[in-house]
Design a protein around this nucleic acid. Structure first.
Lengths: 151, 151
DNA sequence: TATCAATTATTGATGCATCAATTATTTGAA
DNA sequence: TTCAAATAATTGATGCATCAATAATTGATA
């Protein structure tokens, strides 16, 4: 309350907002943000290897494998290997599923629109810049700036 | 890539940044942001009931219970009941642990400082306002704005 | 006073992400 | 050619958060 700097508030608020955002998103769309991102990436790319997908959605390879196995079991996607490389697995949406996912794409757009209601385009640009700046800053933080002596 | 609106980018970036932030924080401080928030709250409040603490740190009561049990087992905190209400459990730091946590408080401050390096005070204020606005917007989103017909 | 509702904490089941270890395959260099 | 290193995916162990159900206690009321 008292000595709580603006920086600290932002730090906490960032996490709080993100949590609310993901939670509400999931209850609205019926799937986690990760799951939805995977599906929307597939909607826009026809065919992709797991490792490429993993880099795009930025979650752990193990998590990707588990998502895709579930989606395959549900009949949403197909997975297959190609002759030239038996290591890589390729993924694509079932035709059947595309329509349903197109609809959820609309819902996501609407959700995102609501989320940033009342922001001017200028503010949005600035928001994005700030987030990117934080990202750069964080990536430059190194462990040994802290704790110092390993007493 | 192509039809990717600024709003959508922010939406994704917000989650990405938060993930990096928490991950780096944990590797620097050696404990999750939740855990550290709990400890720092206790450092500043001497004694608190679990339910009050739970509201402060904004995580599920079940998660709080589990954190506190671990901290108790580690000898970092004590938990006890009071005569006037046998339901509530009160929590306080062990004297022994306070010094160590004070140090981690410094580390957290340093981390937060690094995170927002290069931001002017004005920008910080604006950042906070934006986050708050998003929070308000999200809280107003209702499930039935979406999907519409439950076909 | 007996009972019902609210409060508080806990537990169990579940979901999702991470890391580390493992397996299979491919590539490249000696 | 052969073998080591790189690449890709998977599995198991673990951590942490959530929800739902349960237990214990307290307060209110009829």
């Amino acid at each position: 309350m008292t000595a709580c700097s603006v920086r600290l508030q932002i730090f906490l608020q960032l996490q709080a907002v993100n949590k609310e955002l993901c939670s509400k998103f999931e209850s609205c769309l019926g799937a986690s943000t990760s799951r939805v991102e995977i599906l929307h990436y597939l909607l826009q790319h026809e065919e992709v290897s797991q490792s490429a997908l993993q880099k795009e959605v930025n979650i752990d390879a193990a998590a990707v494998t588990r998502h895709l196995k579930q989606l395959e079991a549900a009949g949403t996607i197909v997975r297959y290997k190609k002759a030239d490389d038996q290591r890589a697995t390729w993924v694509k949406l079932e035709e059947e599923a595309k329509r349903h996912i197109e609809q959820s794409y609309q819902e996501k757009s609407q959700f995102v629109k609501e989320t940033f209601a009342g922001f001017s385009e200028e503010e949005l640009e600035q928001f994005l810049k700030m987030l990117s700046k934080v990202s750069v800053n964080v990536s430059h933080v190194t462990k040994n700036q802290f704790g110092g002596e390993t007493k």
